[in-house]
Design a protein around this nucleic acid. Structure first.
Lengths: 186, 186
DNA sequence: CTCCACTTCCTAGCGCTGCTAGATACAGGA
DNA sequence: TCCTGTATCTAGCAGCGCTAGGAAGTGGAG
């Protein structure tokens, strides 16, 4: 049906516009009015596709999960050895967050109502998490792999967010990352 | 001078009202209008004390730094041994964030323009950081103490924020904390 | 071909936000 | 008692997310 196709196309346009605007100027610049202007429709149209602005942000975040997972998979596959894999994956994670701050915020910082720690986690998020898990597995010892992975992830997330909000100086970043990697790869 | 005293008193009232409101209902509920009503003055009075809402939040955050530092000092002083000190301080840090989420947000998550990673860091924040540094010092080895401390801090911050935003299930919290402590105390 | 029903879309507006210009009330000194 | 300067308030701006109600356009039945 043509109508449905056009409708799906418009929905994609909304998410794309939100993503571009957020990446270029941050989420504060993403208003429903600007979004509507961008897709050349009126404001209420957005609400026939999404429940609200949060839902649009969630849709953008879901795209991000796929990209992050892909980046981690690729990097881990081409790592020389398990220890190097931890370093590479950590670097890739941080690079992803650094290069797409707004995207990262939607995924992991801002309050978007997505089912995270529940049964039906977004597939791509689970894939990214699984990739992290496989990376640290050789060094988990007899500890629960999921717990170790979550802790490692928290370390990366903390580094990223504290630096981006100005709480950590940018210059020590490489050394901090090295410390974290060291503590989780032996 | 009486005028100045009354003025200082009112400023304290503003910060106190902001803090209470934020702790009770979150920062979204802290509007300049509600704040003005709380102190029984009109809105523009707020702007004769603070540059804007952000500055009020920053003032609340500064109070929080003192409390956090005090909590960490107290806990570390009464720890049985260095390894236990790391565990206790980590637990105290997380407990602080858990019990005063809004306060923690103002301090470490939200964008308030405070000089963090610059030369004139708020004194109490530096005290808290120094306390963390002393806690991990016995396990820093030949690595730079500041770098190790910042990384440990990032781990704690990551655990706190990912859990509070629903990205990590609450149930595994103790085990994750144990992993982090273990990795930084040997 | 005409009419009607239905879907789609837009205009206009609500209640809220942070913030500020201009008018008013009040204080202390001459 | 009058005047000057400060302290404070009222009223309003431009923006926000979101929505009710009406207009326009589409597609099928007679």
């Amino acid at each position: 049906m043509r109508r449905e196709r056009e409708r799906a196309e418009r929905e994609r346009a909304i998410v794309a516009a939100a993503r571009e605007l957020a990446l270029a100027e941050g989420w504060d610049a993403v208003t429903t009015r600007r979004l509507a202007a961008e897709i050349e429709y009126s404001q209420p149209v957005l609400y026939s596709h999404f429940k609200g602005k949060d839902a649009i942000m969630a849709a953008v975040a879901v795209e991000g999960f796929a990209e992050l997972a892909a980046a981690l998979v690729s990097v881990r596959a081409s790592a020389a050895d398990p220890r190097q894999a931890v370093a590479d994956v950590a670097a890739a994670y941080v690079a992803f967050a650094e290069q797409r701050p707004a995207l990262y915020d939607a995924m992991f910082t801002l309050a978007v109502d997505l089912p995270f720690a529940s049964s039906d986690v977004p597939t791509d998020l689970a894939r990214g998490f699984a990739e992290l898990a496989e990376t640290v597995r050789p060094f988990a010892g007899d500890a629960d792999l999921e717990v170790v992975t979550e802790t490692f992830w928290s370390g990366l997330h903390g580094l990223v967010t504290l630096m981006r909000s100005g709480r950590l100086r940018r210059e020590g970043h490489q050394r901090r990352l090295a410390v974290l990697v060291d503590r989780f790869s032996r």
